[in-house]
Design a protein around this nucleic acid. Sequence first.
DNA 1: CATGCCGGGAA
DNA 2: TTCCCGGCATG
Length: 432
Amino acid sequence: MLYMAEQHEEVKEKCVQSLSKNSNKEALEDQRAVDGKRVGRDPDPRSVSLLEQKRKVVSSSIDVPHPRRSEEEVDMDKVTAAMVLTSLSTSPLVRSPPVKVSESLSGSWKDNGSAGLFTPSSNSSSGGYWSWSAPSDQSNPSTPSPPLSADSFKPFRVPSVGGVGPGPAGPDDPSLDEQDGSSLLFDEPIPRKRKNSMKVMFKCLWKNCGKVLSTAAGIQRHIRTIHLGRNCDSDWSDGEEDFYYTEIKLNTDSVADGLSSLSPMSPSVLSPPPPSLLPSASQPSDSHRPPQSSDSKEPLVGGTTQLSRSAPSALYLIHTDHAYQATAPVSIPSSSSNSASSASTSFTPTNSSSFSISWQSPPVTFTGNTHQTPHSVTYKPVLVSNISCFSYFLSRKVRGEGKKCRKVYGMENRDMWCTACRWKKACQRFTD
DNA sequence: CATGCCGGGAA
DNA sequence: TTCCCGGCATG
């Protein structure tokens, strides 16, 4: 803890950065920002508020709204989902993290790790690697199990990374640890690993329809049947559909980013909340990807249950932004609570209550002054989003209550002050 | 405005 | 290192 104070400044920065990244959109800008930051960073915590606001406004680089959805679409989605999964499994390097496809795939990603693609730099704390690569907790890659939650989270958070962190985290608090590690990465920003993280999707350009599908065929079919009113059963196409959809490239990173930001870090404890976001991770292969697109909206608002399901892998559910805002709180991980549950798919609505509890409690624990008022949903995400932030707030010295030399002895007796006080440093004599 | 201190900088 | 101080944050 003490050292935290010392490094609190760093943490501060980190927080700011991470905060700034909470939005998907920003995720895109992330790298840029990061780069910029490396040169000149924004030390000012005050910016947080701005960032926060900004973040709210932002998001939705891609909308995936679609009111309607036919059964057919559903099927299609299934297919799509399958494809997506396939692709994911194929390129573990990029996807595995965020998606954490499944344990089954664990092998693949594991290999990855072993491959040492991202061997952490020797730099101790600052290892310029992605934490997600898991050097840290995956140190025992051999055992994917524990990680389950941890893993999932990791990948996600990676992107959010932003700062440099004080490496040391209380041994007792792994979450912090992880976080720090990841945060340090700075140097090897996301790009490195994710270069291939682009995912191609097809978005329907039809007015008021933002449907996004992962396959051209799918989108064409969608257009044909939904918009052109053609008989769906026939695959026949005159190619006209081509005019109504566009190919879009999604940066899975960004998505992950957004998610990551949400998902706090406690690896060990993803618990319920994550479900909403990470569920995909926790829920192995079967999570339905496709649906997500359509479901997307619902989740946003609230159905935790729904959320957990749809949100899963929604790689392109970018506007999960809002979603997570709401859910994020849940994700607060720190609490150990039901982390275990993450593994299972079951997040019944009933649990929702438990959720909130779990996530809330943590904050409560720490927040000295942070108000964990239920209504201030917006805050939570923020706080939660980055543990370091927590730590920051926690560690942040808020003017020692106790009187310090200056006050005790007064300016006139300055010579009686402890040296620290004389030097305008933290008082050593009357420590709080 | 008074305090407490961080981040820098000069000696 | 030691000693100071600008300047920010907080109350």
